[in-house]
Design a protein around this nucleic acid. Structure first.
Length: 299
DNA sequence: CACCAGGACTCGG
DNA sequence: CCGAGTCATGGT
């Protein structure tokens, strides 16, 4: 009988567990995690090993409980903790963001309304890029439905106490999937092609999170990513923001962002791209956080 | 019923 | 380079 394994991570100052929980709760059709009470349960994949973890919060610490029977090496435990840190973006110091927001008419109110909210991450590269592709053009609720179908058709699962928890499909599985099976999920043919192409590029090592992270700046990464079919400026910036954690990432064409800016500024129309370039200069390293906070006004 | 959704590709000028 | 059409489906 193995005892349940537990680990703890101290959270930084500018952290409000409830704000992050509220963000995770905003979409009831989400398939990548479940929330019961004040606890988040999800699967994490480390070295091809599926780990079921439950996250809770107490007195400035995140508690990570491992629910399934796995034996982890020290190195794997370290990777798991890094995953959780990345998920909540714990290593970033948000003081400069709130400093900036205090003097910014657009950010002032949202920053205090959602104080302690972290830019929740999608650490897995294939998941992040797939989610970007799925989210193109269609309504968010439909995108969540497509993701659920994709995950429940091609992902692996862990059952625990009558609940089912899913891991996102691996690039290998999607690369080998039959086009007909992908089409049956009601993705457009183009999106199926994009997903398979990306999966194959990852499998062959032609693209990787590590390689993109080693690039000099967001412009270089964006230029490299947008050469891939199906990845335009929006998707590239979305992935840079949620997965690569580049503060300057800024999906300036994002409809949600434009609508939020319109509301906050009381504009008659959506803001122009030139006004977004101005915001990019003002917000610098905090474009991603600004976007994430503004999204919270809508969803 | 028309229109738009957390876009990007394709093709004609 | 630039504008218009196309894509799948679901919600309003």
């Amino acid at each position: 009988m193995s005892e349940s394994q537990e680990y703890h991570l101290k959270v930084p100052m500018e952290f409000d567990f409830q704000q992050n929980l509220n963000y995770l709760l905003r979409e009831s059709n989400e398939v990548m995690y479940q929330i019961e009470g004040q606890k988040i349960t999800r699967v994490v994949e480390i070295d091809n090993l599926l780990i079921l973890i439950r996250l809770s919060y107490k007195e400035a610490y995140l508690r990570i409980s491992i629910l399934n029977e796995v034996h982890l090496t020290e190195e794997q435990v370290a990777k798991l903790l890094i995953f959780v840190e990345d998920f909540f973006d714990l290593t970033r110091d948000l003081k400069p963001f709130y400093q900036l927001a205090k003097a910014d008419p657009i950010l002032k109110n949202v920053a205090s309304q959602f104080y302690g909210l972290r830019l929740m991450g999608v650490p897995d590269f294939f998941e992040a890029i797939s989610w970007g592709i799925l989210g193109q053009q269609i309504t968010l609720s439909f995108a969540y439905t497509l993701k659920r179908r994709l995950v429940e058709r091609f992902g692996e699962k862990i059952s625990y106490h009558g609940q089912v928890y899913w891991a996102f499909p691996t690039a290998a599985v999607i690369a080998d999937a039959d086009m007909a099976d992908l089409l049956a999920l009601k993705l457009s043919r183009r999106k199926c092609e994009y997903l398979q192409e990306v999966a194959r590029l990852i499998l062959s090592g032609q693209i990787s999170k590590e390689a993109y992270l080693s690039m000099a700046d967001t412009e270089t990464v964006e230029k490299a990513m947008t050469t891939i079919r199906g990845i335009g400026p929006w998707t590239a910036n979305y992935v840079m923001m949620r997965c690569f954690r580049l503060g300057e990432a800024f999906p300036t064409a994002d409809v949600g962002l434009l609508n939020a800016l319109k509301v906050v500024q009381g504009l008659p129309e959506k803001p122009t791209q030139s006004s977004l370039l101005h915001l990019k200069k003002c917000w610098g390293q905090w474009c991603g956080y600004s976007t994430f906070y503004l999204w919270r006004l809508l969803y």
